[in-house]
């Protein structure tokens, strides 16, 4: 049988036995569906299990978690590790720094993005196009680590809390997002307010800011995550332990076994349960517990703000 003829019979068979063909296709579909379900279950597991693993270990008996016995479920649950966190020198201060930079930094990023995004839509602004490009162009170049560091040192922003804040205030990408959003707001709204005598600033605070709230929520999430996760600026700028962030402290705990030993001793000796092996702090228990503490804020807000995340990347995709 030639190929053509085969195709013809195949076609006619399909016509005559529509029912049979339909069943066949669903069988094929079924197999594909099954495979995709299994494969995606695997992907989901790979992404979630490590978090689960760290969490169950941080609440299991420390001698068991230290020897790798805790793999699937928590054993001999206790929360001493979390109570001991208060005894770890530098940790609460690092948490304070992390929270402060996240709060202050995020508020500034959001307000500045909203304000500049709005100002760049105002045709009256002097040399509007030029200044817009002046800001946006910075997304595409970078002087490099060393010139940046030397600049920061010149400005006295090394070993200075504001070194975390000021360089991140103007974020061109968020400004683009705000500008695009402002442009979609009907011009009549602003014009009406201006006819009623509202100035540039008043239009911004009372008219535009409430209108562009949805995009600001998206930006706030992104900015907060960026600030919370930031590690490199501590590495480059800060040598004063008082200014270390949680991310940086965690890295120190993982990499500096010697300093951790001191931590283990100090947090154990001051704990009443020191004698109980299952609850005595170990290097692993401290590392894992701190990891949970650092990861938890992100995990907590994450499911609630997922729709903002999606919205953010979509707008970004349109512009990018």
């Amino acid at each position: 049988m030639t190929e053509k003829a085969y195709a013809a019979t195949d076609k006619s068979m399909g016509k005559n036995n529509k029912h049979a063909k339909k069943i066949q296709r669903t069988a094929g579909d079924y197999v594909i569906s099954f495979i995709t379900y299994v494969v995606y279950a695997f992907f989901a597991f790979v992404c979630v299990y490590p978090f689960y693993y760290i969490i169950i270990n941080s609440i299991s008996a420390n001698n068991l978690s230290d020897s790798g016995k805790v793999i699937f479920y928590p054993m001999e649950i206790h929360f001493t590790n979390y109570k001991n966190l208060a005894n770890i020198p530098g940790l609460s201060n690092a948490a304070y720094i992390s929270v402060m930079r996240t709060v202050i930094g995020t508020v500034l990023i959001v307000i500045v993005a909203a304000f500049l995004g709005y100002m760049f839509t105002r045709e009256t602004l002097w040399k509007r196009k030029f200044w817009y490009r002046f800001v946006v162009a910075t997304m595409y170049f970078n002087a490099g680590v060393i010139p940046w560091y030397l600049t920061m040192r010149l400005l006295g922003l090394t070993n200075n809390f504001w070194g975390y804040i000021f360089p991140m205030v103007v974020q061109p990408f968020y400004i683009i997002l705000c500008k695009t959003y402002c442009e979609s707001v009907p011009k009549e709204l602003q014009e009406a307010a201006e006819i009623d005598g509202a100035g540039t600033m008043r239009v911004f605070w009372q008219i535009m800011l409430p209108v562009i709230k949805p995009i600001l929520a998206t930006i706030a999430i992104f900015a907060a995550v960026a600030h919370w996760n930031s590690f490199q600026d501590t590495l480059l700028l800060m040598t004063d332990e008082k200014l270390f962030t949680l991310q940086f402290q965690l890295y120190q705990y993982i990499n500096r076994a010697s300093s951790l030993k001191a931590l283990v001793n100090s947090s154990t000796s001051s704990s009443a349960a020191a004698a109980i092996l299952a609850q005595a702090a170990t290097a692993t228990s401290i590392r894992m517990t701190v990891t949970v503490v650092v990861v938890l804020p992100v995990m907590m807000i994450y499911p609630f703000f997922q729709r903002f995340f999606t919205k953010g990347i979509m707008i970004g995709a349109v512009k990018g």
Binding site: F51, N229, F231, F248, L250, I254, V295, V298
Partner: peptide, 10 residues
């Protein structure tokens, strides 16, 4: 949404 330090810790 987690930092590289956390990835490394994991």
């Amino acid at each position: 949404f987690i930092s590289w330090v956390l990835v490394f810790s994991i």
